[in-house]
Amino acid sequence: MNARTPDSTTARLFGLGLAGTGAAHFTAPRAFDQLTATAFPRSTRSWTYRNGATELFLGLAITFRRTRVLGAVGLLAYVGFLGSRLATNIGASNDRT
């Protein structure tokens, strides 16, 4: 038997939203530069584009059922990476004051 489970509308909408946010990094990068600078004070615009590409690809992976698990694992890794960058840079700026 080849039964398929129903697709998750919530996961698809979340994936499309994340992909749309990622695409927005390319169409309106200045809107993301200030937030990006907190975690990536050097080469901020380059990191804005990198983060946009990451969010675009992860969002698309989450949108489709076949790649959803891989996209979710990638998203967890990405959030961990951003959290570590924020913690490092906020800690470093507190040490300078």
Rank of each mutant, 00 (worst) to 15 (best):
M1D: 11
T54G: 13
A19G: 00
F32D: 01
A3R: 15
V69W: 15
V79P: 00
T63M: 08
Y78Q: 13
L18F: 12
R85Y: 09
R96F: 05
W47Q: 08
A31C: 00
A77P: 04
L18Q: 08
D95A: 11
G59I: 13
N51T: 15
A23T: 10
L13G: 04
L18G: 05
L60C: 11
A11Q: 09
G71N: 14
G52Y: 13
H25L: 03
R50A: 15
T38M: 15
L75K: 12
L18R: 13
A72Q: 11
R68V: 02
A3Y: 15
A24Y: 11
T10G: 14
D7G: 12
L35P: 00
L82E: 04
R50T: 14
A39M: 10
L60R: 08
I62S: 07
T10E: 12
T10M: 13
R85W: 10
A77R: 13
L60A: 12
F32H: 03
L75R: 12
S8I: 08
R42H: 14
A87E: 00
T88W: 05
R65Q: 10
L18W: 11
P29T: 11
L86Q: 03
T21F: 10
N51K: 07
A23D: 05
A24L: 11
G17M: 06
R30L: 04
A31W: 06
G17A: 07
R45F: 07
G20N: 00
L82T: 10
A31K: 02
W47A: 10
G15T: 09
L86H: 06
F14H: 04
T88M: 03
G22I: 02
Y49V: 08
N2A: 15
R68I: 04
I90H: 04
G20I: 02
R30N: 03
A61F: 14
G74C: 13
R42D: 08
T27E: 01
R45H: 09
R42C: 01
R30P: 00
T54S: 14
Y78I: 11
T10R: 06
F40I: 03
P6M: 04
L60S: 03
G17T: 09
R68W: 05
S93I: 02
